[in-house]
Simulated assay, not measured.
Amino acid sequence: MRTRGIIVGAMPFQTPLTDDVTLRELSKDDAAAMAQAYTRNREHLAPWDPERPEEFYTEEWHKERLWVQVLENSTGRALYTVLESDGEIVGRLNLTDIVHGAFESGHIGYWLDARFIGRGLMTRAIEALAAHARDELGLHRLQAVTLPHNEASQAVLARAGFEKIGFAPTYLKIAGKWQDHVMFQLILHG
């Protein structure tokens, strides 16, 4: 039950995507697994992520910061999730900047472990999160952005029902430079 954006008595969000991968709400105990996932995918994510300080790849860095994301989950301002396989984090899917009232909207961002690409996992994860955002959080709209040359991410969004709505010049600082992004949205209540 949602009351003024705060989730009251809610069970943590969790849904199986396949026999071996589950999408679940982030836990404060995920620091070690998160550091391992980012370290394992450092090269794979570098072209799509902001530049990261060296300490980002340590358990201590994540321990100091995960509690903020867990708190945001509990207040309804965000829903930070992970894709997990055999106790290992193999991706992230985050719903952030949740705004209620007349807007009822949020932004999604995601990445997937290089070993799990091509299985349709992120499409299924986004579809599950969108259904939860609509049915449980009462959101009307989700937004996502990608780099113009990130065709794989754009294909994931298209398969999940997102439509291209615009272009944002120098939108985010990715891989050390301000880069343009293509904007997408998914209307959850048609």
Rank of each mutant, 00 (worst) to 15 (best):
H107C: 05
D180C: 09
T58I: 08
V145W: 15
E55A: 10
P50Y: 06
L71M: 13
A102R: 01
M11A: 15
L112H: 07
D29S: 14
H100A: 08
A133H: 10
D20N: 04
A32V: 09
R24C: 07
N150G: 08
G118C: 00
R124P: 05
G166F: 14
G109V: 06
N73A: 02
A125V: 11
G9D: 05
L66W: 05
P50L: 03
T170E: 13
K173S: 03
L83Q: 01
L121I: 06
L23D: 10
V156Q: 12
S27F: 10
I174K: 00
G138V: 03
Q36P: 07
A46R: 13
D20Y: 00
T15R: 04
W111N: 02
P148G: 09
E54H: 04
H44T: 05
E127M: 11
K63T: 14
A10G: 15
L95H: 07
E64D: 12
Q154V: 10
G109F: 02
Q185N: 07
L71I: 11
I108T: 04
F13G: 08
E59R: 12
Y171F: 09
Q36A: 13
L95W: 12
T22H: 03
L137V: 14
V145G: 05
G190H: 13
Y57H: 02
H149T: 13
P169Y: 06
L188D: 11
